[in-house]
Design a protein around this nucleic acid. Structure first.
Length: 201
DNA sequence: GTGCGGATGAACT
DNA sequence: GTTCATCCGCACT
């Protein structure tokens, strides 16, 4: 399937893009090995006006500058000193919107994913959760700022019947610090999918 | 230069 | 349900 075009990412409506990224395939080629999965859970982070966003209030630092680039690149950062989290940067330049990828259903490279996750047998937690899926796909901060239609990492269409799944929205995970924005229902996932990180919320 | 805390996950009880 | 690993980013001095 074709990689998503630059134009896909340019919409100013980050919540719409968070929904439209569900059912797309995220692919990496790291150390010459291809791994991929279907996106089943996302969260929208709405730039300068979103108290949960790293770019809230126009904050521009070495870390956040990636989000101010034109949509269509990866924003990867380290969380809790341990986990790499990957976002899809969206919107035009200087509009720091991003979509956090929180859940992935594996389609390619299961053996390598198992090795990277130090698992001996399959369990859905292999790619459920933003830190987990990044580790499984070999994503770290070395991919920060990379073009999402490049050769190391990209997003492409996927024609399987995921689109028939019902999409649930709910409050975002782990953003209790965001005061009156903590309960905004900007998390999206496929109802009942096993690779959603916290299905009960 | 210093100090605080986080868009988490795994291993516990 | 609770604990905690682990370290950089960020605000402030």
């Amino acid at each position: 399937m074709p990689k998503l075009p630059f134009s896909f990412y340019q919409s100013d409506d980050v919540n719409d893009l968070a929904i439209r990224l569900l059912g797309k395939k995220l692919v990496t080629v790291v150390d010459g090995v291809l791994t991929a999965g279907v996106i089943v859970e996302t969260e929208a982070y709405k730039g300068v006006e979103d108290k949960a966003s790293h770019a809230f209030g126009g904050r521009l630092t070495n870390r956040t500058q990636t989000m101010y680039e034109p949509g269509g690149i990866a924003y990867v950062y380290l969380c809790y000193g341990i986990h790499s989290l990957i976002n899809v940067v969206t919107g035009p330049q200087f509009t720091p919107h991003a979509v956090l990828i929180r859940g992935l259903e594996p389609t390619h490279g299961m053996e390598v994913m198992l090795q990277r996750r130090h698992m001996v047998s399959f369990h859905p937690r292999i790619t459920a959760g933003p830190g987990a899926l990044s580790r499984a796909l070999g994503i770290d901060r070395g991919l920060n700022g990379k073009d999402l239609s490049g050769e190391e990492i990209w997003v492409e269409d996927y024609d399987q019947p995921y689109h028939s799944g019902e999409i649930i929205n709910s409050p975002r995970i782990g953003v209790s610090y965001a005061q009156d924005h903590a309960l905004l229902p900007w998390r999206y996932y496929y109802k009942g999918n096993k690779f959603v990180s916290k299905p009960h919320l």
